[in-house]
Design a protein around this nucleic acid. Sequence first.
DNA 1: TAAAACTATTCTACTAATTGGTAGATAAGA
DNA 2: TCTTATCTACCAATTAGTAGAATAGTTTTA
Lengths: 192, 192
Amino acid sequence: MAINDTKTAILDSAQDLIQRLGANAMSYDHISKSVGIRKASIHYHFPTKENLLESLLERYNENFLKIVDDLFSSSDPEDKKLLKYMGLFEATLQDGDHDKACLCGMLGAELFTLGPAAADRVRYFYNENEKRLTSLLDNGKKKGNFKFKGNSKKLAALIFSFLEGALLLVRAEGGVKKFQSVKEQMMDLVKS
Amino acid sequence: MAINDTKTAILDSAQDLIQRLGANAMSYDHISKSVGIRKASIHYHFPTKENLLESLLERYNENFLKIVDDLFSSSDPEDKKLLKYMGLFEATLQDGDHDKACLCGMLGAELFTLGPAAADRVRYFYNENEKRLTSLLDNGKKKGNFKFKGNSKKLAALIFSFLEGALLLVRAEGGVKKFQSVKEQMMDLVKS
DNA sequence: TAAAACTATTCTACTAATTGGTAGATAAGA
DNA sequence: TCTTATCTACCAATTAGTAGAATAGTTTTA
């Protein structure tokens, strides 16, 4: 297997485990079994667990923010963009064997058990998302695509908190269907 | 130490650890050191970890829902009640050594690593909170204390997801102050 | 009342499994 | 041949959980 294929397979497996069970329930042994490679080989590519988490977060953040940037720079009206943005979280839920939460949502719960570099990358993900949401709301409000009381920055933080929370909670009951229904409700709130 | 004092001290310590670090980062050894009692003695009171989690969730749910019921049955107007309800989550954040999330928010992230009985109690907490919020929103809307598009049940689920999410996320950055600001923003949303 | 019996609680000392991580041999590619 | 990648085989720490001895605290009984 080409080196990047192995590295990718390891990261994929780790991400899957964390999104479903959390970082503290994920182990090199689990990854080893799922990838079909020995534990020591994983240590060759990612010497420590903290190291693996950092690489994983770097990849995740880059991918996700790239998608958001593409989406937000399209010609859709702002309300449509928000709906699609929330759809990204919905897609996570349906990905693979289902019931995956956002990687950074899971790691947010376990934040104080992470090393400082990984924790910083989680914070970065939150900040970058809220930044992009803030300007989306701002633009949309100016053009009349949104109508809401309060200010865009606070609303952005509210929406992002809501999305991360909903992604975690609907796994307990309701699943994708419930996520869709609260998503629609959120659209109602920002248009009145 | 009287038996209930010991049991209470164990549950207190376990709750503190889970609210800060998560259930999978909490161990009998940690509790042992924090309570000042041997590990085997904890097993005497709570034979298995799953057992301990069940007892802890039973206590937590009962306490929290009792407070909510008292709050919601007061004579305050509904919008005031919602503000106070959100204040309960804010108080969690400031409790003890700070940075505690909701117990069931933390366990929601780790839901698929829990035993079925503990997982059921987490679901119960979610359902009971959403139930109470739904009727609060319903009543408040009828009396004109709230003004929002959409339906009360969906909005209740949205608000609850938001609160659980915010409680997790502000621990990364912003803390209590940020929680207060998104709380105020939420009040704005349900009154327009 | 005092001793004996019983029960409840905590202790020391262990086990087996799992954890992250390492050393060094072996194989595969360039 | 030299580098890259994977392997076997280990280590020390931590995990949940157990066995059984040692205390406390109560009750019962002589």
